[in-house]
């Protein structure tokens, strides 16, 4: 992917928590409308990488560019976050607000939209993802799959240029995974640029334009899914995929 067409570019990004270096120099280029899946063992740094892109974690070294503009400590972090949506493993919906208010909070309070406009937009989005009848419920009354779809809608309501999905199906009961994955597929088909940390290998194979294998804080291998999943070059990638296959996840 050429640097010109890139929406997101990471350049030697490093991050430590105390004495533990979680990211050891990550380079990544994500083009417009591209769907990149991050795979790798737990603790390989996938979640940390996504949180760094959203500036939820300050990076220790390296540079991050969004459409060529460097983002980091000195910029308005809230302005960056308006452009980059993130969805978490544990949904993190606001439990004291109804679904509609969860979705309209940021558009009204950050973008300054009128309540009526934000609600109309939120209602349309909720309808698109089969949640129209849940608009006036509190999150605790929804299933995990419904909650995660609301969380995705909440991020979409900010009309982000880039979506980051952090193992969004890992906290779900198996029968609820499909409804969330189909939402993500729909987004991909609609041209949304996404970076997705996932353990769902068959989903990654079907949906990703590119798969990156994270190992020990670095991107060890990347390429089109058919290449990574059928003939991985690196020994560690092969081992990881063997374990996944043995666990029946591919």
């Amino acid at each position: 992917m050429s640097a010109n067409g890139s929406l997101l570019r990471l350049d030697g990004v490093r991050k430590s928590f105390g004495s533990v270096e979680v990211l050891r120099g990550v380079d990544l280029d994500v083009g417009e409308h591209e769907v990149v899946c991050l795979i790798g063992a737990s603790g390989s740094g996938k979640s940390t990488l996504l949180r760094c892109i959203n500036l939820l974690e300050p990076i220790d070294a390296g540079r991050i560019f969004l459409r060529g503009d460097e983002i980091g400590d000195r910029v308005d972090v809230n302005a960056v976050r308006r452009r980059v949506g993130i969805v978490f493993q544990a949904f993190n919906l606001f439990p004291h607000m109804r679904v509609l208010r969860n979705v309209t909070l940021a558009p009204t309070r950050v973008l300054g939209k009128s309540r009526a406009e934000a609600e109309a937009q939120a209602t349309a989005l909720l309808g698109r993802f089969g949640l129209a009848d849940k608009r006036d419920e509190y999150p605790d009354r929804l299933s995990g799959g419904q909650q995660q779809r609301v969380a995705i809608v909440r991020a979409l309501a900010m009309q982000p240029e880039l979506m980051l999905l952090d193992e969004v199906t890992s906290a779900l009961d198996p029968e609820l995974v499909a409804e969330v994955l189909s939402v993500i597929r729909e987004l991909a088909e609609g041209g949304m640029t996404m970076v997705i940390a996932t353990h769902e290998m068959s989903f990654a194979r079907d949906t990703a334009d590119r798969v990156c294998f994270l190992d020990d804080g670095r991107i060890l291998e990347e390429g089109p899914p058919e290449e990574i999943f059928t003939r991985p070059r690196e020994l560690r990638t092969q081992r990881f995929l063997e374990r996944i296959i043995a666990a029946g996840r591919l």
Partner: peptide, 20 residues
């Protein structure tokens, strides 16, 4: 995680406190 969710939507620290 509630603060992380609010901040990730672009809410400032003050608005995160106030609304979330």
């Amino acid at each position: 995680s509630q603060e992380a969710a609010a901040r990730s939507l672009g809410l400032s620290r003050a608005k995160t406190l106030r609304f979330v």
